[in-house]
Design a protein around this nucleic acid. Structure first.
Ligand code: MN
Ligand code: MN
Ligand code: ZN
Ligand code: ZN
Lengths: 143, 143
DNA sequence: CACTAATTGCGAAAGATTCGCACTTGCCGC
DNA sequence: GCGGCAAGTGCGAATCTTTCGCAATTAGTG
């Protein structure tokens, strides 16, 4: 559960909705706002989807959660942790593989050297096919 | 402009709308369906947005255009060329830097070796900040 | 030129996210 | 503890983007 103080410490009011949204993001890993709402409804059935959206934005502003774009679907939220990671998103089965950011360091460095580009690999996923799906071409969903 | 035969050669009917959509994608580079429609309207004001969407899909199915996701905004289409490229998308100013795919080969190889993941860097952009925007923090648009 | 299937235009529908606004509630000071 | 007020919530409507159904049009074929 969300520690009572971490929200207050960020200057946020402590509401049941806000606590539950944060807890849901932590529990679900890479959840859409819709999925977060679904989870929160288990404990607080009356919560409104707007409230979920607003709290996700608020929690992101204070750094407790982050969003990323995994591809066709909508935005997904995950809890901020000390270990930043990139997402490898299989476009056939939707599996997400997390890659520690230092496994990508030489690549991002080369983009900096070659193009002056400061890469944020956490924000957008890297698309592709996982091993399993790659070996079953008939399952290829159109990206 | 679009060569009359290339559409027929793909088994597609040659309609003014279809030709103009293809020409617009080629002229615009990384355009949204909306932008494509806007461009086509200069020559063919009556074109319907649905027709643009349908033609983009059709042209993609025969390989003449491709879409990619640059981030928050919607899908963008560009003409298929022999040189596949990844997109570096500056989240502040929207600039897109194209990176030849072989500049990314050692990275994608490392994802294959480490995770069995077959990467398609053309489909989703790589987010970050261009040199200019990186040096003017006040311009940071929220991603 | 006539026929048929593909394509188009149009309006409505669907899905995702945002907004306006009146009502409620957490929090601060007294 | 209590009151006041700004922050937060619920609700419904508005937006924005993309898709669909269907009747009318049109490209391609012979
Ligand atoms: Mn896609
Ligand atoms: Mn984003
Ligand atoms: Zn997969
Ligand atoms: Zn920039």
């Amino acid at each position: 559960m969300a520690d009572k103080h971490e929200l207050r410490d960020k200057g946020l009011r402590l509401t049941p909705q806000r606590e539950l949204v944060l807890a849901a993001v932590r529990a679900l890993e890479h959840a859409t706002p819709e999925e977060v709402a679904e989870k929160v409804k288990q404990t607080h059935p009356g919560i409104n989807l707007s409230t979920v959206y607003r709290n996700l934005e608020t929690l992101e502003n204070v750094g407790l959660v982050q969003h990323s774009h995994l591809g066709h679907g909508g935005v997904r939220y995950h809890a901020s942790t000390e270990e930043i990671h990139a997402h490898l998103n299989c476009e056939s089965c939707g599996t997400i593989i997390e890659v520690p950011i230092d496994a990508t360091a030489s690549f991002t460095q080369s983009l900096l050297d070659g193009y002056g580009f400061h890469t944020d690999l956490a924000h957008l996923a890297i698309a592709g096919r996982c091993e399993t799906c790659f070996n079953m071409p008939e399952t290829f969903n159109k990206p």
